[in-house]
């Protein structure tokens, strides 16, 4: 017997929607490929969070950034 509670109807709404997709399936594939490239390749291997990866504490990060700012000050 079909469950007709509101949560069950919402779940069915989404499931049926995804099942009936035609062009949408291609678009979802495209989105997933894009997300995979972005998060599993680009983010992981090419776009590290420099401060998060190289320093342990916020104080170290603040000190590093300030050191960089001092170095880049134009000559007097």
């Amino acid at each position: 017997m079909m469950n007709n509670s509101r949560p069950a109807r919402i779940v069915r709404f989404y499931l049926d929607g995804f099942r009936r997709m035609t062009l949408g399936k291609t678009l979802w594939k495209l989105i997933l490929i894009k997300l995979l490239i972005m998060f599993a390749i680009l983010k992981l291997f090419f776009f590290p969070d420099f401060l998060a990866e190289n320093f342990q504490t916020d104080q170290q990060r603040a000190d590093h950034v300030f050191g960089q700012l001092r170095q880049r000050q134009s000559p007097q």
Partner: peptide, 24 residues
């Protein structure tokens, strides 16, 4: 669908290329 998430790359760039800016 085509455009979605393309902006996220900019957030990656903040952390990698623009860390002084991101921190500040």
């Amino acid at each position: 669908a085509v455009g979605v998430a393309t902006g996220i790359i900019m957030e990656f760039e903040f952390g990698t290329n623009w860390s002084n800016y991101s921190w500040m």
